[in-house]
Amino acid sequence: MRKLTATVLAGAVTLAAFTSLQAQNGPPQLPGQMDTKRVLAGTYKTDKNHSLIGFRYNHFGFNDYFGIFGDVDATLMIDPANLAGAKVEATVPINPTVASQGFHDHLLRGGQDGKKPDFFGPNPAPAHFVSTNVKVDGTKAKITGDLTLNGVTKPVTIDAVFTGAGNSMMGNKLTVGFEGSATIKRSDFGLATFVPMVGDEVDLTITTAFEKQ
């Protein structure tokens, strides 16, 4: 009985101490914070598990199709003392994840009766983006570069925003996050099937986590 009482008392004291310490220090802080001072000069690579590109376009005026490309393999070279000199290069596998299996299959199926595929076809080359110019305004940036998609290269501008930096809880790596958006015309890249009944403009939404190498 004495041992049980002592154990209960010890637990109560520990809980009280923890509660007091938490009250003094406040609630736990997220590892990533909107603090640009945490960003250090160097080369960063994407955390592929947490870097995605969403796409969305209209379907016959009724509603929008949307999906996600994952496994984004990108490199960021950045120096806070010279942000205009930042460089971004990204390779994006054409591996759409969508709500409809039928839509997924349509994007990747071959052409019928020897015709060209409606969209990418069964063995599409990855998309590739290389920045050519970066203009920074506070925590926002316009990143212009060359996008190669479906064998065609066109200039594209991404509106990007810094979303956080800090050491990750897994691996303790310095991580910086960004989100971005861009709009392209799929017909510019040889993907004009059903235009204009199916929307030509494709809205891209980008979310990336970069880890310092």
Rank of each mutant, 00 (worst) to 15 (best):
M1K: 12
R2W: 10
K3M: 11
L4C: 03
T5F: 04
V8M: 10
V8Y: 01
G11I: 08
T14E: 02
A17Y: 06
A17L: 13
T19N: 10
T19Y: 03
S20Q: 11
Q22N: 10
A23C: 02
A23G: 07
Q24S: 11
P28V: 14
G32L: 15
G32P: 00
G32C: 09
Q33P: 01
M34Y: 03
T36P: 00
R38I: 14
L40W: 02
A41K: 11
T43I: 10
T43E: 10
D47F: 03
D47W: 04
L52S: 11
N58Q: 15
N58H: 07
N58G: 09
F60T: 14
F62T: 11
D64T: 12
F66A: 13
I68Y: 02
G70R: 06
G70S: 13
D71G: 05
I78D: 05
D79F: 04
P80L: 15
A81P: 00
A81C: 04
A84G: 15
K87E: 14
K87M: 13
A90I: 04
T91V: 13
V92Y: 00
V92D: 04
P96Y: 11
T97M: 10
A99P: 00
S100A: 09
Q101T: 14
F103R: 07
H104Q: 15
D105Q: 09
L108V: 08
G110D: 14
G111Q: 06
Q112T: 15
P117A: 14
P117D: 12
D118Q: 11
D118C: 03
D118A: 11
G121C: 06
N123I: 09
P124M: 11
A125P: 00
P126G: 10
N133I: 01
V134C: 01
D137R: 10
G138C: 08
G138D: 01
T139G: 01
K140A: 15
K142W: 07
G145D: 05
T148A: 09
L149M: 13
N150Y: 07
V152C: 05
T153F: 01
K154A: 02
P155G: 10
P155I: 08
V156S: 05
T157C: 04
D159C: 06
D159T: 12
A160N: 04
G164D: 08
A165E: 07
S168G: 14
S168A: 15
M169L: 14
M169S: 12
M170N: 09
N172Q: 11
V176T: 13
E179L: 05
S181I: 08
T183L: 08
I184E: 03
K185Q: 11
K185C: 02
R186S: 05
S187E: 12
S187Y: 05
D188G: 02
D188L: 06
A192T: 05
A192C: 04
P196Y: 10
D200T: 11
V202C: 01
L204H: 03
T205D: 12
T208N: 01
Q213W: 00
